[in-house]
């Protein structure tokens, strides 16, 4: 199936093909590597829910055409 990963920091998007047994972590690693980001530094959202990295595409109930978004998790001091 085809999904889109959006980078909230730039508005850029990646369209990608994934399979049902791919994990969210693998998807984010792929996108993060492409954008040269640290994959572990982000909260991943699908609509109003946080996606857990260990879930597969099937378990996360990702559907064809879904958009998942990388949200920063900043710290200030």
């Amino acid at each position: 199936m085809k999904i889109t990963v959006k980078d909230a920091e730039t508005g850029n998007r990646i369209n990608m093909e994934v399979e049902e047994d791919n994990t969210v972590e693998e998807i984010i690693e792929e996108a993060a590597n492409y954008w040269k980001k640290n994959p572990g530094a982000y909260v991943i959202r699908l609509g109003k829910k946080i996606l857990q990295a260990e879930l597969t595409v099937e378990e996360a109930n990702l559907q064809d055409g879904d958009i998942i978004e990388l949200i920063p998790d900043p710290e200030g001091g």
Binding site: A8, E9, T10, G11, V43, R45, G47, K48, K49, I50, E69, I71, P72, D73, P74, E75, G76, G77
Partner: peptide, 27 residues
């Protein structure tokens, strides 16, 4: 007084806000 970050469970409040935006936003 010297540190701040979002509560993990609070991100859904942020998602609600982002979903209200009608244009192609950028952080």
């Amino acid at each position: 007084p010297v540190y701040v970050r979002f509560r993990r469970e609070a991100f859904e409040e942020i998602f609600d806000k982002l979903d209200e935006i009608s244009y192609e936003y950028v952080m």
